[in-house]
Amino acid sequence: MKKNLNSLERCKNYRKKILHLSQKVSALHIGGSFSSVEIIDAIFNNLKKKNDKFILSKGHAGILQYVVLNDHGLISDKSLFNYCTKDGILGVHPDYGNPGIEASTGSLGHGLAIAAGLAYSDKKKDIYVLLSDGELQEGSVWEASLLISSLKINNIVIVIDNNGLQSSTWAKDTHPTLNPIQKKFSSFGWESKTCNGHKSLEIINKIKQRSKKKPFALIANTYKGYPISFMKNHPIWHYRSPTKKEYLKALKELG
């Protein structure tokens, strides 16, 4: 990890690396990865202590986690380069057993209950979980949320990448009642805050300032595809990879 970089530079580099990889594969989930960059950067580079754990419950952003783990020296350049190839170990979704991967995800709504087991059996560690707002439509998320607060498993921090979009459409179109998310978690017995999910300092401060008397849920408002002009807020970028022309344009925009 290049320690002298600030979060802005790190996040720019993470996005660039994802763009480079995008030219090798078709199934990338670039939009939902770009919306989570500042969140994962904050968790891995500012918040997570050595033995704490991180579960990417929105497993489709796997490539972003790989890029960050590569920055931390846990995933080799060779492994990253072989992403989704026959010689590689890394697929689109995180696979338990691969370096730095704490759970196999990809099917939404699994990460939180696993985190409950991890956190319950080792109270000295904090367990960070990143969920998507679309994932909140899974009943298992609310089942686990209710259980975690009821069992007073307070060493869990979840961040919801609230980019407003899911695979096919806007979350508010299928679920106009999804909002307000923060109040829902509060009423489920969690401490809950909202922040701008592209402002690293806001993410870090809100999580650091939690009381630790309850499990903590941070609703991070983001844009899918951020900050690329032609990707931002377009559902199509949930899954597709940029063409060569789009790739060059995106690189230029990142600067």
């Binding site: 696993i114 087991g117 991890l118 319950y120 209710l146 069992l151």
Partner: peptide, 23 residues
Amino acid sequence: FINTGVAEQSMIGMAAGLAMNKK
């Protein structure tokens, strides 16, 4: 002894997390 209540998905997910911690 953990009773997850009427929440079988959480029962299995939580069991997985416990097993990851060598239980």
